[in-house]
Simulated scan of single mutants.
Amino acid sequence: MVLEQQSLPLPQLSSLPPQPPQLFSSLLLSSSNYIQWSGFIKTILSAYNLEDHILQDPPIKSNPPFKEWQKKDNQVFVHLLLSLDEVHKSMVACSPNAKALWDHLSALYGQTNNIGRVFELRRQMADMRKDNKTLPQLFGEFGNLWSELEVLRPPTTDPTEIIKRQNEDKVFSLLMTLGDSILNYEIGNSENAKYLS
């Protein structure tokens, strides 16, 4: 018996969902993953040709296409909210549009001179252990940290910046030797206070 091969109809482009899928909630923003999160969100929005909602100012309300823009902007806004943890949702829920929400988070976490985050990345890389991870998992984790570090500290040939980074790295190295004990440092102790002044 010969079976006839049937071909299934391909979906028409117009039948695809008009807004971005639930991909937004697969990576939630936290205080330590802004660069990774923002790149992920920009990629999704770009795929749906909606990145202008976070990169450009809204059109004037009196323009005829404003209503259509506002509908799409509300969709982007909701999807952005879905990609935030509860703390961040409460910070930006009253933003007037998607761009205002995006700008607020960018101002909080998007500074490329975020020295605290640079230290945290260095510390995480220094503390990495293979444990039960496979080698590809370990390389992937390290690669993600390194990529974020390169965004915060891109390669430079500026001598002043190189010296600044060398000095920061010295401080980082010293702080990493202290471990968590720095958090328990007793400032009130007169013996310790002389080192902090």
Rank of each mutant, 00 (worst) to 15 (best):
L3T: 08
L3G: 11
Q5R: 03
P9H: 05
L10H: 09
S14R: 13
L16Q: 11
L16G: 03
P17M: 02
P17L: 06
P20W: 04
S25Q: 12
S25P: 00
S25F: 01
L28N: 08
S31G: 14
S31L: 04
N33V: 09
S38L: 07
G39A: 05
F40D: 02
I41Y: 04
I41L: 05
K42A: 12
T43H: 04
I44N: 03
S46D: 11
L50D: 09
L50P: 01
H53V: 13
I54L: 01
I54T: 07
L55V: 03
D57R: 11
P58R: 10
I60D: 11
I60Y: 09
I60L: 12
K61R: 15
S62A: 15
S62R: 11
N63Y: 07
P64S: 12
F66Q: 06
E68K: 15
Q70N: 14
Q70R: 14
K71D: 14
D73I: 15
N74T: 15
Q75W: 10
F77M: 11
H79K: 13
H79N: 14
L84Y: 06
H88N: 10
S90K: 14
M91Q: 13
M91C: 08
C94Y: 05
P96C: 08
P96A: 06
N97K: 00
A98W: 02
W102C: 04
L105F: 02
Q111G: 12
Q111Y: 01
N113V: 10
G116D: 14
R117L: 03
R117I: 12
R117D: 06
V118K: 01
F119P: 06
E120C: 08
R123I: 06
R123W: 10
Q124F: 00
D127R: 03
R129P: 01
R129T: 15
R129S: 06
N132M: 09
T134L: 07
T134C: 07
L135M: 13
Q137I: 08
W146M: 09
S147E: 13
R153M: 14
P154G: 00
P154R: 02
P154Q: 10
T157A: 02
D158K: 00
P159R: 00
P159T: 05
T160S: 10
I162L: 09
R165I: 01
R165H: 12
D169K: 02
S173V: 06
M176G: 02
M176A: 03
T177C: 02
T177W: 00
T177N: 06
D180M: 01
I182V: 12
L183T: 11
L183D: 07
L183G: 13
Y185F: 15
Y185Q: 04
Y185C: 10
N192A: 07
K194E: 15
K194S: 13
L196A: 05
